[in-house]
Design a protein around this nucleic acid. Structure first.
Lengths: 142, 142
DNA sequence: CTGATGATTAGAATAGATCTAAAAATGATT
DNA sequence: AATCATTTTTAGATCTATTCTAATCATCAG
């Protein structure tokens, strides 16, 4: 039963990698497995630890390379909080984030709430510090 | 005439520092002078170079400390592009940014354009890569 | 099997930022 | 002016997230 579920999970992950143009190597499947186990925000370091804990051995360089690759292939999103905090978000759907500068928590903003920033929709017990919006653009190919 | 303007500029900067609760020391005035000479986006490193070029000597540590202080005191804004790119924006008014991933340019978005992101308002010759919105909140003081 | 290509790895290297401890400046008090 | 406390600056060391390097390993077409 568990095995059945695990096999299904592996198949899904392999599919997902393929469909995003990522060659599903062993390490990439391990990393994806941990990363997509649930929607979550992780740092490269946290993910490295989580992979270790799962009993598999993947080097830290591979974790960094793979997260970069996944982000480039739009499997996941990179979120730059500050110079020492880069999160990876396995939830690929259109949404934004609250970041609590006191606690370091990164919290999802449901997309439909986005127009209501100025209303009373901040997380309980928090006040807005600053809203930073960066739109990354790229040069149009000619 | 130039001197007169410079004196006025210095007075303005001293005022500005005071009014934001920053003790206007020599180095801080030098840094503010270069930083506010025009609205601009600079990295700590670029600012350090610019200060050098202006003929004044301020250590790099002081540049970092001072930029951090100014940001904390809301004289300027910190913009985190990625793990190795932190910009400081001397334009304190309410606005956002385009970042060109190909060129590394940081370009202002006029606030009133913000609701029209999806329209044809991107910088010429560019296409949207990703829109990242992070709202930084802090715990309400009890 | 053989060679080519791509992936992974450990550890070194890099770079932005921060820390440290000492020196210098400032300012208040006598 | 001399003393003391406080703040600021500084050079250099240190930290830490990330990237690089060069060697090894895996995969697969022929």
């Amino acid at each position: 039963m568990e095995d059945q579920h695990q096999i299904q999970q592996n198949r899904n992950i392999t599919e997902m990698l393929y469909s995003h143009g990522v060659n599903p190597t062993k390490q990439r499947r391990i990393i994806a497995d941990v990363l997509f186990a649930r929607n979550q925000h992780v740092t490269a370091d946290q993910l490295f630890d989580a992979v270790q804990q799962s009993g598999c051995r993947v080097s830290k360089a591979t974790v960094y390379n793979t997260l970069g690759l996944f982000a480039r292939k739009k499997l996941i999103r990179e979120i730059f909080i500050d110079a020492t905090r880069t999160f990876y978000d396995s939830n690929n759907s259109h949404h934004h984030h609250f970041y609590n500068v006191d606690t370091g928590d990164l919290i999802d903003i449901k997309e439909h709430l986005a127009p209501h920033f100025l209303g009373p929709n901040l997380p309980d017990g928090t006040a807005m510090e600053i809203l930073d919006l960066v739109i990354r653009v790229k040069n149009k190919s000619p």
